[in-house]
Design a protein around this nucleic acid. Structure first.
Length: 794
DNA sequence: GGTAATCACATTTTT
DNA sequence: TGTGATTACC
């Protein structure tokens, strides 16, 4: 064994070594929670390279950017001593989607795409589907885009395309036939816009690999060793990609844990991992069952729970870690009591020496965070939330990206429609409709139609088409709108011309933000401006990382596939609040899981439980994130969707072995608040009765106002909370009392508008918005903390 | 074209 | 209950 090999294996266990040293042929690593999976994978990559495999022929695929980045870093760390300059190349580490996007870009002619095709995210897709629905003369309110989205996405994940679906739906119900029609039209919208949606990335690559033997061979040749992480979460399309990529050499290494499959509802098929050995005869199977993360008791609880799942590969998790504390199961009265308990415990843990960053609170539903946030804020406990809505979903960012997308791909209709009147420039719905009508009749894109209204500069051509010819009839029909359209076309063209002269993406972004008027539009909105500034920064980072080699198109492709769970930063020194789904892959010394109640976890919608085993796996994931201490809470009553109901403890709690639990009941007796009269009132006429909270308590404070102020402070940051945000908390707390400083009727003097009277006061984010009736200047809405106003006595 | 009022909506959401 | 999104209205 070489010195390098010895180093690679030095601190590994026997099963880990077995996985690492496996070179050729299919390999399945069943890695239990906390069993050192990532370490094993990265070491195996190093091992392959140490054994003569070229780094360039290794492909590692993950599901999240975060996982990909982490793996990249760790592989880099291992490789630097072997090849400091990277001359031997580096393995390809990518997410399924970014890998597909890259390959489709490289072979774009093969799939009929342009080199700079657009990638549509969920909101683009919604708009496109809506457009398609309207175009075939149906009303989107009868055919909600959301319904179609889930069907289309589900089908695409199963490798079913519109044409095939139309065939089967042809005989079916009216609704299904219409759905097929909309889908077909949606594909047209995409094609005209030279765009694909997320699912297409996978679908197209999968089909190309499957149907084009030469292409497949080339890919098999290029990537001799393929690793797929979180294999239990692969859907049909991803399965197919993995399969075809390795069809000729069968060097596929899948790692995952069936017990942590929690994305079935997104099309992930747990059977992909369950039948791996059947799919790949001769598979070497390695089980990593030693857990390095949790205490014995926590592991015992997790193990006892997951044993209730029938559909499962047996795996016995064990650990050499300490016995640890018992798992606390606490029953509280309601969500408010739960939040108080949480804040108490967090404060106590911190006093005991645990940093806030080492604690996490998990929940099944995002809706549960509200009350929690409130109480954490009251106690000045810093926290960060992983929310679905992310930086790149913010309006101003989407607008900016839309401008940039338009420069690269003028046919991108969704991008065009998004910004054609943002900021407002007199191109309303009517004008766009007329243009669209013309475009449809002429068989050209919306941009080309706009270009025919004319401009000073030579037209920006769509996909190499002819420069647009000016159409006077069209101009006449647009009337007043024509001039506005012309100005818009000129603007975009000049931005396009300017972008040619830029070095680096950052310059382009800066130019577009100022030229488009977006920056000016956002200048009064501090948060929006900050976000735009951050976009510029992100572009700058990208430039530096790529050595100023990458194009705007490259960046846009990258950005389209970025989500923001990456924003969760364990270093930030704040308690982490997140859903159980978001928790996968993380670990914390102290974990709370709130809302452990029937109907919440397992979640029940209407009266059907979708898949109780998946819910159990989700709970399992939550439990196994805990390293040392775990607290599970459930409330006796809880309000959800405006309805307060009595709650039963989750059945999952009773599946945990009593020996490792410390069960407490801190709930107040509920019978003395039994108020049948109120019950009806508070239940919205529900006849279930009982167990209601006193209305007086419910409405006692102006918690709502406080909540609104706070939520902007905490969730408005987009990319999570910065240190400055955290330090701002105390200040904001104090300022929050300002609402009462401006009672209605107060006389104020404004530097510009003179004297006025406060008519109305409402909280607005962290600020106080007041409506003031000025003697000169009339009624204005003013942010009291920012406007030059002062109180006038008398 | 911008704001006010009303209305549906409310699991999870790697990309 | 609370929101975000559409619709109605100046």
């Amino acid at each position: 064994m070489s010195e390098v090999e010895r180093i690679i294996l030095a601190d590994l266990t026997a099963p880990q070594r077995e996985a690492v040293t496996h070179i050729d042929g299919p390999l399945l690593v069943l890695a239990g929670a906390g069993s050192g999976k990532t370490r094993t994978i990265t070491r195996r990559v190093a091992w392959l390279i140490a054994n003569g495999v070229s780094p360039r022929s290794i492909l590692a695929v993950t599901f999240t950017n975060k996982a990909a980045n982490e793996m990249k870093e760790r592989v880099e760390a291992l490789m630097t001593p072997l090849d400091p300059d990277g001359w031997g190349g580096r393995p390809t580490v990518a997410t399924f989607h970014s890998f597909a996007a890259r390959i489709l870009r490289e072979f774009h002619e093969k799939v009929g795409l342009g080199a700079d095709y657009s990638i549509y995210d969920q909101s683009d897709r919604t708009r496109a589907i809506k457009l398609a629905t309207e175009r075939i003369g149906l009303d989107p309110s009868n055919f909600p885009p959301a319904d179609l989205e889930s069907v289309i996405s589900g089908q695409k994940n199963q490798l079913v395309e519109a044409s095939e679906y139309a065939k089967t739906a042809g005989q079916g119900l009216f609704r299904d036939r219409k759905l097929a029609d909309i889908w077909t039209e949606y594909e047209k919208v995409l094609a005209e816009a030279d765009a694909v949606d997320f699912d297409d990335l996978l679908l197209r690559l999968a089909k190309l690999l499957r149907d084009d033997a030469a292409f497949r061979s080339a890919m098999n040749e290029r990537y001799r060793y393929v690793l797929i992480d979180e294999y239990q979460d692969t859907n049909r399309a991803q399965y197919q990609i993995a399969h075809e990529l390795t069809r000729e050499h069968r060097n596929l290494c899948a790692t995952g844990d069936p017990d942590q499959s929690i994305y079935g509802w997104r099309g992930a098929d747990i059977d992909n991992i369950m039948r791996f050995e059947r799919d790949y005869p001769g598979t070497k199977v390695v089980r990593l069952e030693q857990n390095y993360r949790s205490t014995k008791r926590i592991l015992a609880a997790a193990d006892a729970l997951i044993k209730n799942n029938v559909k499962r590969k047996h795996k016995g998790l064990w650990t050499e870690n300490a016995e640890g504390d018992r798992i606390e199961v606490v029953r509280v009265t309601d969500a408010e009591a739960e939040a108080e308990l949480l804040a108490d415990r967090i404060a106590a843990a911190q006093a005991g020496g645990l940093a806030f960053g080492q604690m996490a609170v998990f929940m099944r539903l995002n809706a549960l965070t509200r009350v929690l946030e409130q109480s954490l804020r009251r106690r000045s406990i810093p926290y960060q939330i992983a929310r679905g809505v992310s930086f790149y979903n913010r309006k101003e960012i989407k607008d900016a990206i839309a401008y940039l997308r338009l420069l690269v791909n003028p046919d991108d209709r969704i991008a065009l429609e998004r910004i054609v009147n943002t900021p407002p420039r007199g191109i309303g719905k009517t004008t766009v409709d007329r243009l669209a009508e013309y475009a449809g009749a002429a068989g050209i894109s919306l941009w080309d139609a706009a270009a025919r209204v004319g401009s000073d500069a030579p037209a920006l051509t769509a996909s190499g088409g002819d420069p647009a010819t000016v159409d006077t009839a069209l101009i006449e029909r647009l009337g007043r709108g024509a001039a506005a359209v012309r100005r818009f076309v000129t603007l975009v063209e000049s931005m396009g011309a300017e972008h040619e002269t830029c070095t680096g993406v950052q310059q382009i972004v800066e130019g577009v933000l100022s030229d488009s008027g977006l920056a000016a539009m956002c200048k009064d909105d501090e948060q929006a401006s900050a976000n735009l500034a951050e976009l510029i920064t992100a572009a700058g980072e990208y430039d530096r990382d790529s050595g100023f080699e990458a194009t705007l198109g490259d960046w846009l492709r990258d950005v389209a596939l970025v989500s923001d769970v990456d924003a969760i930063d364990p270093e930030v020194g704040a308690v982490t609040l997140m859903t159980l789904h978001a928790a996968k892959g993380l670990e914390f010394p102290l974990v709370f899981i709130v809302g452990c109640e029937e109907g919440i976890i397992p979640h029940r919608r209407d009266d059907s439980v979708r898949d109780i085993e998946e819910e159990r796996r989700l709970f399992f994931v939550g439990i196994t994130r805990a390293m040392r201490r775990l607290v599970l809470t459930h409330a006796a009553i809880r309000m959800l969707h405006g309805k307060t109901d009595p709650r039963e403890p989750s059945a999952f709690l009773s599946e945990l072995p009593a020996a490792v639990l410390d069960v407490k009941d801190q709930s107040e007796p509920v019978h003395d608040t039994f108020q049948p009269g109120w019950s009806r009132q508070w239940n919205g006429g529900g006849s279930r009765g009982g167990w209601q909270k006193r209305p007086a308590e419910e409405t006692a404070s102006d918690d709502f106002a406080e909540l609104k102020r706070g939520s902007a402070l905490y969730t408005g940051g987009g990319r999570g909370m910065s240190r400055a945000d955290l330090e701002g908390i105390g200040r904001a707390e104090q300022e929050s009392s300002q609402a009462s400083n401006w009672p209605i009727g107060t006389l104020v003097r404004h530097a510009k508008f003179g004297v006025g009277k406060v008519m109305k006061v409402t909280p607005s984010g962290p600020y106080t918005k007041a409506t003031i009736d000025f003697k000169r200047g009339g009624i204005k809405a003013v942010i009291m903390e920012m406007a030059p106003v002062e109180r006038v006595e008398g």
